[in-house]
Simulated assay, not measured.
Amino acid sequence: MKLLLAALTASALLTAPAQAAACRDAKGKFIKCTEKAPTKPIRCKDAKGKFAKCGTPGATPVK
């Protein structure tokens, strides 16, 4: 059990530097990351308040 906990902790600690390395160039200097945050899909509701496809008449986008 302790071995499993140690393995999970080690894997969590090792994944963080890999994500930070994506924003560095080949020389190791920091650069602006080109990855964008994932956007939420736009959802729409009809006049009755039920979810509907955004292309249908009367559907309005919801945040």
Rank of each mutant, 00 (worst) to 15 (best):
F51P: 06
K50C: 01
A37E: 04
A52S: 14
L8Q: 08
P61E: 15
Q19T: 06
L13M: 14
L5S: 09
P38Q: 10
D46N: 15
K45A: 13
C54Q: 04
C23P: 01
A22E: 15
P41R: 11
T34C: 02
C44L: 03
K50N: 14
L5P: 00
D25F: 07
S11V: 15
G58I: 03
A26D: 13
L8S: 07
P41T: 11
I42P: 04
E35M: 09
I42V: 15
R43A: 06
E35K: 12
Q19F: 15
F30S: 14
K27L: 09
K48G: 09
P17I: 02
A52I: 10
A12V: 14
P17A: 05
K32H: 09
L5C: 06
L8A: 14
A18S: 10
A6T: 13
P38A: 13
L14F: 10
A12K: 05
L3D: 07
P17R: 02
L4V: 15
K2Y: 02
P61V: 07
K53D: 11
M1S: 12
C44T: 01
D25L: 09
A7I: 14
P61W: 09
A12L: 15
P17Y: 01
T15K: 04
G58Q: 03
K40A: 15
L3K: 15
T34Q: 12
C23E: 12
R24D: 01
K27E: 14
C44I: 01
A16C: 00
A21E: 15
A16F: 11
V62F: 00
G28Y: 02
L4Q: 12
L5Q: 05
G58R: 02
A20F: 10
D46G: 13
L4D: 03
K27V: 10
T56A: 10
C33G: 12
T15R: 04
A21P: 01
L14P: 00
T39A: 14
T60R: 03
D46L: 08
A47K: 15
A26Q: 11
G55T: 14
C23G: 10
G58F: 02
T60V: 14
L4F: 12
T15N: 06
K63S: 07
T56G: 00
L5G: 01
K50H: 13
G55P: 03
A20T: 05
T9Y: 11
C23W: 06
T39N: 08
A16M: 13
Q19S: 05
F30Y: 09
C54K: 07
I42T: 15
K63A: 15
A21G: 08
M1E: 11
I31Y: 02
A21T: 04
A12P: 00
P17W: 03
K29I: 06
Q19E: 14
K36F: 02
K32E: 15
K36R: 11
L3S: 12
K27I: 01
K50L: 10
G58C: 03
P38C: 04
P57G: 06
P57F: 03
A20D: 11
K53E: 13
K40C: 01
V62T: 04
K29S: 09
L8W: 09
R24L: 10
G28S: 03
A7W: 05
A20S: 08
A22L: 14
